Computed example of a mutant assay.
Amino acid sequence: MADFSEIHQRLNNRRFTVANNTQGLSGTGTVFRYVVDGEAITGTYQGGRIRIGNQVGRVTGTNTIELLYQCVTTEGEILAGWSRGVVSQDHHGRTTLHFVWGWLSGATGGGESSYVELVD
């Protein structure tokens, strides 16, 4: 079995906020929370234009993940999509996430987005 301990350490029970997502729905005020169990990843997100959302995914490499996500917006829309991400670290030691993503239902298109760990 592959060693996914670094992703577990960087994501498990941690919170993230949007650093850059010009083409996406999440934005200022959206907070993501992740749980990592082996290679399985689950998450929730809400805030900003997102009333409630959840994610399910898996670790695909030593610093890569893929996720499926779905949400209900504050306008009552239901949306779903996919993303492939890279987990890394910024010069302050905070975990960062960079995703390429696309919509599967409720919207069209896609883009790239970046997130940074919220540190208390």
Rank of each mutant, 00 (worst) to 15 (best):
T95Q: 00
Q55A: 11
Q70A: 14
E39P: 10
A107P: 07
E77K: 11
E66W: 05
L68S: 12
Y45A: 15
G48P: 05
S88R: 04
G61F: 02
R51D: 09
G47D: 07
W103Y: 15
E77R: 12
V87W: 05
T60A: 14
G76W: 01
Q46M: 11
I65K: 01
T96M: 09
A107S: 15
I41W: 05
R49V: 05
T73V: 04
T64L: 13
Q70T: 08
D90L: 04
V100E: 15
G48C: 02
T73H: 06
T44W: 00
G43H: 00
T60G: 11
T96G: 08
S83R: 07
T95G: 06
E66F: 07
G81D: 03
Q70F: 00
S88N: 10
E75N: 13
E39T: 11
I78D: 01
V100K: 06
V72E: 11
W101H: 11
R49N: 11
T73Y: 02
T108C: 05
V86A: 15
G38F: 00
S83L: 14
T42H: 13
H91T: 12
G61T: 00
L97C: 13
T62N: 11
V100A: 12
H92N: 04
F99I: 01
W101R: 09
G110F: 03
A107D: 15
V86Y: 12
T64W: 08
G85F: 04
G48F: 02
A107L: 07
S88A: 14
R84T: 13
H98V: 13
G93S: 01
I65H: 01
Q70N: 10
L79F: 00
V59L: 04
V100T: 07
G53K: 03
T62M: 02
G57S: 10
T44G: 10
R84P: 12
R84H: 15
T44A: 15
G106L: 03
L104M: 11
R51N: 10
A107F: 03
W103K: 07
A80F: 00
Q46L: 13
G76H: 02
R51H: 08
V72K: 09
G38S: 01
G48N: 03
T74N: 12
N54Q: 12
I41E: 07
C71Y: 00
V56A: 14
H92Y: 01
L104E: 14
L79S: 02
L68M: 07
T60M: 13
W101P: 09
G38Y: 00
T64Y: 07
G110K: 06
G47E: 07
R58M: 12
I50E: 07
W103G: 14
R94L: 10
G111I: 00
T42P: 02
G61Y: 02
T73L: 06
G81S: 05
W82I: 09
H92Q: 09
R58F: 13
S83V: 02
V59Y: 05
R51I: 03
G102E: 09
R51F: 04
L68Y: 05
V56S: 13
E77D: 14
G57L: 14
S105R: 12
T74D: 06
T95E: 00
I50A: 10
W103H: 09
I65V: 09
G47F: 10
I65M: 02
L68R: 04
I50R: 06
S88F: 04
Q55H: 04
Q55F: 08
F99P: 02
I41L: 12
V56I: 14
G102V: 05
I52K: 15
G110T: 06
Y45E: 14
G109T: 11
E66Q: 15
I78W: 00
T44N: 10
